[in-house]
């Protein structure tokens, strides 16, 4: 059997402001993840650096180390690659007041 390989849309057309994060995603079966964050609309204000976060329980989160600048313009794409992440994954970013981005976050997971 071929190894599992899934594209999961974890945030679609969500407006990220303040302390933003994608919903917790369980992917313990996957050995690697490539995560794309696409700006669906023109971002407002200076854009923060997005980071991959991992978790022991899906509720408490720590930075994994992978990070990328949020897209500066519409249809810009940030990409982060991770492995050795245990079970839980999400993407988080902290936006300054008045700043936002409407995002499409996709996780590409491979066993």
């Amino acid at each position: 059997m071929l190894p599992e390989n899934i594209t999961s849309v974890v945030s679609r057309n969500e407006i990220w402001t303040g302390k933003a994060a994608s919903e917790p995603h369980e992917a313990g079966w996957a050995r690697e993840a490539v995560i794309f964050v696409r700006a669906l609309k023109e971002p407002k204000g200076p854009q923060p650096v997005a980071r991959v976060e991992i978790s022991p329980d899906g509720m408490r989160w720590v930075a994994e180390g992978a990070a990328a600048a949020m897209p500066a313009g519409r249809d810009g794409i940030a990409v982060m690659r991770v492995s050795h992440f245990g079970n839980w994954l999400r993407v988080a970013a902290d936006f300054a007041d008045g700043c936002e981005s409407t995002v499409l976050v996709t996780m590409h997971l491979k066993a």
Binding site: S8, E26, D57, N87
Partner: peptide, 14 residues
């Protein structure tokens, strides 16, 4: 719009 993707879970608990 609120829907998200399914997951493969081991029902991992803290």
């Amino acid at each position: 719009a609120q829907h998200t993707g399914t997951m493969l879970s081991t029902l991992s608990h803290w």
